[in-house]
Write a protein that binds this DNA or RNA. Sequence first.
DNA 1: AAGATATGTGAGCGGTGCTAACTTTCGTCA
DNA 2: TGACGAAAGTTAGCACCGCTCACATATCTT
Lengths: 214, 214
Amino acid sequence: MSTDPSAPDAAPTVTPKAAYHHGDLRAQLIAAVRELVETHGPDGFSVAEAARRAGVSSAAPYKHFKDRHEILRGVVSEAMDRLRAAMEAGAAAHPHGSLEAVAAVGLAYVAFARAEPGVFRLVFGLTEGHENAPDLLAKGEGCFGVVVRAVAARLELPAGDGQVQRRAYMLWSFVHGHSFLTIDMKHKVASAEIDDWDYLVSISRAILASAAQA
Amino acid sequence: MSTDPSAPDAAPTVTPKAAYHHGDLRAQLIAAVRELVETHGPDGFSVAEAARRAGVSSAAPYKHFKDRHEILRGVVSEAMDRLRAAMEAGAAAHPHGSLEAVAAVGLAYVAFARAEPGVFRLVFGLTEGHENAPDLLAKGEGCFGVVVRAVAARLELPAGDGQVQRRAYMLWSFVHGHSFLTIDMKHKVASAEIDDWDYLVSISRAILASAAQA
DNA sequence: AAGATATGTGAGCGGTGCTAACTTTCGTCA
DNA sequence: TGACGAAAGTTAGCACCGCTCACATATCTT
């Protein structure tokens, strides 16, 4: 939804945003902004600079996005797609219902944060227009769903079970916090001394074990 | 420590920045910026607006801070002081070495995030000049130290013990992640259905229990 | 009292977000 | 085919912001 102001890309052309003049400026702008956010931090980005990198005038972006916030939301949306894909790939790399599958979902999350700290921070630091963007909330729920399904498989309970939801949220909190702390203080105790895989396996075990008795 | 790179406020006057004309403009600017960050988000702040609120010209702030980043660092520094105080108060409100003391430290953390989400995000989202600000890093370590001491007391081990450090970091990750998720998606499953105290006690137990056997 | 220093002001430069008015390109359909 | 409307780009411009400079003023030191 979100009033699709941007494009009638539903039916006709195969290339989703196939361009008139430029050649898919929208996607190119998102890519440029992603790069800027990654290198100069979430605040060190400007629409003007992104336009410059895409080789267009500074007013051109406003034909595709109504604000700077909408561009950022575009970057976030794209990033969340990749994050979810990575999480699902992590789960799929291990036996269904295994503890390792749960840990691998978390590892994908942490790996994403490490690989793209700027974008990661943007995804979870976005404050403007979060409530006006139900698609982003839905994608967030989608990511959480990956965790939930891995936990449900491990506990052999339905995904809707309260215990599953609770433990999944615990794991998510954990991984989320570790990701942030890791990218924040790069040269600190945390990131240096901790092997992510062992760490995540051990955490997953602790949380799911406490589920068994709780 | 903290090498006070910013200001020669160490020696002479008792009141650290007691004012000449205005009456402690420095502190007033920090307060104004804190308010702005809280209401308009970390990016929706401007030095000009802060100056306006303090009743001075837009150039005045630059007599006290070299950048806008330095003002933000001032806000962060002040916030970390309060955060640490809250954590210590939380620990002190329960018997030394109790599980509740550990959980109370976490609760103080979460409460801070809930009470001042904008500032909280700022504290942990600051990217510019983090490495040039050893005092902030030291304060961060100080906060972590509160967690470490509570965990060490609970496990009856010295604070330097590796197991203590590891479990403290786990707890911190957890609480940090929960704080962020809570303030990010206000109307979501997470914050609505979870009672913080029960949640934190249960998590503390799970993590410290897994320490006993690991 | 006097000079040094800290703290304020106003003017101004370059950059930014966004809008308005105009031009060019593309798709469509008589 | 060619005219027309919408899409996608341009330049010009306003208001604001970060930051600096030259200057004015208040306070401290001696």
